[in-house]
């Protein structure tokens, strides 16, 4: 599973929050409140480890990813990457550090500059980080990258729109790997692709990780996919991590009622099982992220909610080598 305990984590995210202001209507646009898209999220990621981040739409997965990359301003918390505190790093130093942390986006149809040829797209990160050396060096590197992601070197003179979604996602993986990053953030990298292509891309990522020792932060809402690729999995709900555990522990014995509900919602390929089971989740209520006043944000939908859940937010507590934020499980 994860690497030896003594090793320093590559990425340490501590209690980060991201709040977006909610402004009133009219000319003045007075600030009338804020949405806490991410609220006190903490996790660590080691070299050669994959952390899966799952949760429904709007649970703060992508916001967490953007915050880790410092593409969004934090309203609280602390991020350490590769031994540096990057929480308040200036623009210029942050740009240099971006070499170590690259990202793959969800929509491969929008994430490549339509006016650049593939060769140029792959050279860009090298140019930006001053790694081109002489001109021939970068041409060779482009060929290497194309081969790495399984594309023909003749594709370098083509434009992005000449490729299928899967091929484009390979190109954006190649672009992310051009500068040999230590951390690769994948924000739903396959949810825009056909199922048959999804497996190819996932296997490519697994293979690349094995070969390069990359750390992956893998965001998805497809639980089966996350199980396939992750070493550990964090489940998010309403901007918070509700459960974080080793993959097998989480999938085989989910503790948090939300994790249980999520796993129960995965369809089984057996019609009898499928009709016999019930999900047991209370009616769909939107998570209360505007006013997280008091109480567990999941208490509105939770079948096991108790009185304490509605007045006190449960902290993320360690229990049996995993972390869970639920009043059902007291401190160890």
């Amino acid at each position: 599973m994860s690497t030896s305990t003594g090793e320093k984590p590559l990425l340490r995210v501590k209690d980060i929050s991201v709040a977006f202001p909610v402004t009133g209507r009219g000319i003045v646009r007075r600030r009338i409140g804020s949405v806490r898209a991410v609220d006190g999220v903490s996790f660590e990621l080691r070299q050669n480890e994959t952390l899966g981040l799952v949760g429904e739409t709007g649970s703060g997965k992508s916001t967490t990813a953007l915050a880790v990359l410092r593409m969004l301003d934090l309203s609280g918390g602390r991020i350490e990457f590769d031994g540096h505190d990057i929480t308040r790093l200036g623009r210029a130093r942050m740009r240099r550090l971006r070499r170590g942390m690259q990202m793959i986006f969800q929509d491969p149809f929008a994430s490549l500059n339509p006016r650049m040829r593939i060769g140029r797209i792959l050279e860009e990160p090298l140019v930006v980080h001053g790694l081109t050396g002489d001109g021939r060096g970068s041409a060779r590197r482009v060929d290497e990258l194309l081969e790495l992601v399984g594309l023909d070197s003749g594709t370098r003179d083509r434009f992005p729109h000449e490729f299928s979604g899967g091929q484009r996602q390979r190109i954006s993986i190649a672009r992310a790997l051009a500068v040999s990053p230590k951390l690769l953030i994948c924000d739903e990298p396959v949810s825009a692709l056909d199922v048959s292509i999804q497996a190819q891309i996932i296997n490519l990522l697994v293979d690349l990780k094995r070969r390069t020792g990359l750390a992956l932060l893998f965001i998805a809402h497809d639980l089966a996919l996350v199980r396939h690729i992750s070493d550990r999995v964090a489940v998010m709900y309403a901007g918070r991590i509700v459960e974080l555990a080793d993959r097998d522990a989480l999938y085989e014995r989910p503790l948090h009622p939300y994790t249980q509900a999520l796993l129960a919602a995965v369809p089984r390929p057996d019609p009898e099982v499928e009709t016999a089971r019930g999900i047991g989740l209370l009616p769909d209520e939107p998570p209360r992220s505007i006013d997280p006043a008091l109480g567990c944000p999941f208490s509105l939908r939770c079948p096991k909610a108790m009185d304490v859940c509605r007045c006190e937010t449960p902290p993320l507590r360690m229990r049996d080598a995993r972390a869970v934020a639920c009043h059902l499980y007291g401190p160890d």
């Binding site: 990359l69 593409m71 740009r95 240099r96 971006r98 070499r99 690259q102 990202m103 986006f105 929509d107 929008a110 994430s111 490549l112 500059n113 339509p114 650049m116 860009e124 990160p125 930006v128 980080h129 954006s172 672009r175």
Partner: peptide, 21 residues
Amino acid sequence: SLYVHAAEAMGAGSLRILVHY
């Protein structure tokens, strides 16, 4: 557009993004 965000995430500076993206 996403490719401008991608360029920012890649570490490209403002001038580069303006001229090339």
